[in-house]
């Protein structure tokens, strides 16, 4: 059987809210090492990779590797019924066709359980190679969200270029053009405002803003987000989930014809 107890239950809610618009149905894979998900959006342009390590759960038991197909919309509906401070426990039998979510209030005066029907989902896993990224910028997650939102009002695509001067986000459209440059700032008073840039070589790639904007729905999960780029490769947008794992998004670049 599978059983996992998460004291920070709202973390699961944040994860599902971050990916449900990108991916409709997905397989959650459980093993003794943790709870993971890998799924592409319908157009196979972007990929979501979630990893929650078993040691991040208060209790984690997985006797046999299993894949649980879920409608993320329905899962979000169920998780919406959990209180913000509730402890969430997931349970599933090895050969069952449902997963149960139990919500316990912190004062232990309210317990509820919701059963979600599992679905059979055909999914192909992609191998994500270890990559020596040319540039990685780590910036406040709220700043990334703002850049994507602001540029979306100007154009549909963004050119992200990393040079020794900083990381520039450029967009253009009918309205005109926009450039936003973030520079390294590791001495900001507040840690949550710090920006760090690790540049091995200059790199510039073009991406669809629609997807980058969608990734920003993960903002509540982490104070910072890292964008890692290498020439002619998908960008990796990485939200670290403290003490547990990560939620990563990959987006294929636009390619010059």
């Amino acid at each position: 059987m599978f059983e996992a107890r998460l004291v920070q239950g709202n973390l699961l809610k944040k994860v599902v809210d971050a990916v449900k618009d990108l991916v409709t149905d997905a397989n959650f894979d459980c093993s003794s090492s943790g709870f993971t998900l890998q799924a592409m959006d319908n157009s196979h342009v972007s990929l979501v990779s979630l990893s929650l390590r078993s040691d991040g759960f208060e209790h984690f038991r997985c006797d046999r590797n299993m894949s649980m197909g879920m409608s993320l919309g329905n899962l979000a509906k169920i998780l919406k019924c959990a209180g913000n401070d509730d402890i969430v426990t997931m349970k599933a039998a090895d050969d069952g066709d449902t997963v149960t979510f139990m919500f316990e209030s912190p004062k232990e005066d309210r317990v509820s359980d919701f059963e979600l029907k599992l679905m059979d989902i055909d999914s192909e896993h992609l191998g994500i190679p270890d990559t020596d990224y040319a540039a990685t910028v780590t910036l406040p997650a709220a700043e990334y969200q703002r850049i994507c939102r602001d540029l979306s009002s100007i154009g549909d695509t963004v050119v992200i270029s990393a040079t020794k001067d900083g990381v520039k986000f450029s967009s253009s459209g009918d309205v005109g053009t926009a450039n936003i440059t973030v520079r390294q700032n590791t001495t900001a008073d507040k840690k949550e405002e710090q920006v760090s840039i690790d540049l091995k070589e200059p790199v510039a790639l073009t991406f669809a803003l629609r997807y980058l904007n969608s990734f920003a729905k993960a903002t509540p999960l982490a104070s910072h987000v890292s964008l890692s780029m290498a020439r002619d490769l998908p960008v990796m947008v990485d939200y670290q989930i403290s003490d547990m794992g990560h939620l990563r998004f990959y987006l294929a670049p636009k390619i010059e014809d």
Binding site: M40, H44, H125, G127, T206, A208, P253, E256
Partner: peptide
């Protein structure tokens, strides 16, 4: 004009 790449062009099957 740039065209949108697909992930399978970059990441292979496991």
């Amino acid at each position: 004009k740039a065209s949108q790449g697909r992930l399978e062009s970059f990441f292979g099957p496991v």
